[in-house]
Nucleic acid binder design. Structure first.
Lengths: 210, 210, 210, 210
DNA sequence: AATGAATGAGGCTTCATTCAT
DNA sequence: AATGAATGAAGCCTCATTCAT
């Protein structure tokens, strides 16, 4: 717990990130309103006052939590898709694998729950999230689907709805894991869950090969 | 605005429900912490103090919101399943249709979002919800799946995970509609969404008829 | 507890007295501020609203509690003193006996504690009490002492201070019994206490007979 | 009014005592319930919120007022008695003198009234007071009386009742001074009062020297 | 840069008082 | 006359924010 803190220099530069990590964890766990700034500071190993050296106020901290937490998400997937060779469905699987490793198992996986809970209290942030994460992700997936439709790999269907149904179980997984999962006696195995999700999709998406 | 008061007696009986409806709406919209009791009272057409004639405090109100909001949900589905005749898949479709009509389009559809957001702040209520809604719903669905497995209508697969994936898109729909949906320029059509969900499931679930 | 209430007529006339008795008991026990009107009404077997038919507000009720509770006190002692024949000391003993029987063992014995606790919050009532109870009682005792001084029964001393010291242990007894007495393992016997008080006084007051 | 702030550090150390003094004064004057925390803070030269940095809530403040106010009282008398040489009655007089100087003329003299008024609302605190002040004081006085009985200085009588009557006028004095004394046109002289109290006691207590 | 003591606005809650029945 | 549902002022307490050190 009380590791002898690293060199002061590194500490200083790492401060904002420490606050953001602490805030993300607590916002996700208890919600924005119910999280006290003092608790965040404590978890970040600093004092309440210090927080104000880096963030104007609680709302700005929230905004930073979302914006910083969201930065790593989409760009990587886009890059991955750009250099992909192979079937469209394999790309979908690849994207999901990568997302699970890079996001799904980290604290960032709490962001969807947080954003859903607070959207109506922070419309600006919600719009930012919608445009920079949701829309871009959907655009990416739309391109993959179009490619599959064009090549005949996928049977034609409504792309937007298809994207909805591709994403929903994935989001639901991380939301669940940050809320009611604790009450489950036999916790869901995310690997198996995601794998069956892709299998079902495959059945529904791929053009039957007679 | 100021509807002419009904008789005091009749008002008194209706009061708890009025508060519950107002509280449900606001809790779902803004979260528990961010909702002020005065706002709830105002929306219920009463004053702050009146609320305390019916509910011990804010937490008790929250608990009642969940418990009352949850009562109508499961029992009806169970009854519907009990008197169903026909294929297992048709039963799944029937259950979903019914749920959408009776819950999905009402304010109660906000409860999943609310419960997810507040689970860690109200563990008692969360456990109640888990046991009385989630577990019972899953048990119901498990029976339907087992029936399908047994009759050969469904190909065998892991029932629990299958239930996860049956439910996830449905929950995600109502969560979405109570959070980021406002930022969508072209709102999802829930009918089409649910219909495609069932189609995908059908592909994945039904035993192929050669 | 729930005795079948007496005839409606008697009840109606007795109502104010019932409220006064209930209020006296609760004010003495918990203090004026900490006593809720609803509690008083409950103990009086009526409802909150009814109280306002008889008393303008809480303060008026308090005032009435004191004024009514005080009425029976002094006049009787004055009458008793007026018709007394015998030694002055015997009169003091007689007054004390009578007071103990008529006041000391009743709920009215709580009034000194109540008045002491609330004097600064109700200066008007305190002044009334001071003038109508304290001053009149002291005047009565002063006359008795003067008679004893004049006859040579008592050795001369400062009458006012003597009255203070005559009264103090008596007041302290009733105050004690309404506050910390519950914590005593072996409760004081008031008879013995008052008797020793008079004995000590006798030693100090009576002119030594050589 | 606005004294120039002493250094923050020094202020912090003095704060609890400042709040305790302010609270003692107001609790004694108006009673616990009728005293508003803001008033206490104001009198202590701080704001409402600051109070909560030092005391958990109003009840904890009350408890501290009593416990801190009581600390200086008994130990000193016990020490004084331990090193006394001379007659037992002289010790009683010495104890009273000392108590009057050290307690009777300070704000702590309001504690008996406060404790009497609030005993039933704070049974824990009342028990603490009973055991740590009343019982210890009585034990001390019991030892003095026993010594006097043994040496033949005092005529034998019931010690417990004798202690009651030794204490009662002293308590009554401080209670009176914190309640109805303001209405007296000619205020009691406490010196004369206490002196006559001891004189009466002497008459009653000392074995007559033939 | 960092701290944490101090503040006070604002929310929850109580309860004296009112008033329709 | 009696009730008790309803009100809202006022008090306790929390916590985001400030600021002297």
């Amino acid at each position: 717990m009380n590791a002898p803190h690293p060199s002061r220099k590194r500490r200083k530069e790492a401060r904002p990130a420490e606050f953001l990590a602490a805030a993300l964890g607590l916002f996700v766990e208890k919600g924005y309103s119910a999280t006290r700034l003092e608790e965040i500071a404590l978890r970040a190993g600093a004092s309440k006052g210090t927080l104000y050296l880096y963030f104007k106020n609680k709302e700005a901290l929230f905004q930073a939590v979302i914006q910083e937490g969201v930065l790593p998400i989409v760009a990587e997937s886009e890059a991955l898709a750009a250099r992909h060779e192979g079937s469209s469905f394999a790309l979908l699987e690849h994207l999901l694998d990568n997302w699970w490793m890079r996001i799904g198992t980290t604290d960032f996986a709490g962001i969807p729950k947080l954003m859903i809970a607070e959207a109506s209290n922070f419309p600006e942030v919600a719009r930012f999230y919608y445009e920079n994460v949701i829309l871009r992700t959907r655009a990416l997936l739309a391109r993959v689907l179009e490619r599959g439709f064009a090549s005949g790999e996928f049977r034609r269907m409504d792309a937007e709805t298809c994207i909805d149904l591709l994403i929903a179980p994935i989001l639901m997984l991380v939301i669940w894991r940050h809320s009611l999962a604790v009450y489950q006696s036999q916790p869901t195995d995310p690997r198996q869950y995601l794998s069956m999700h892709m299998n079902l999709l495959r059945q529904g998406l791929l053009t039957p090969q007679v």
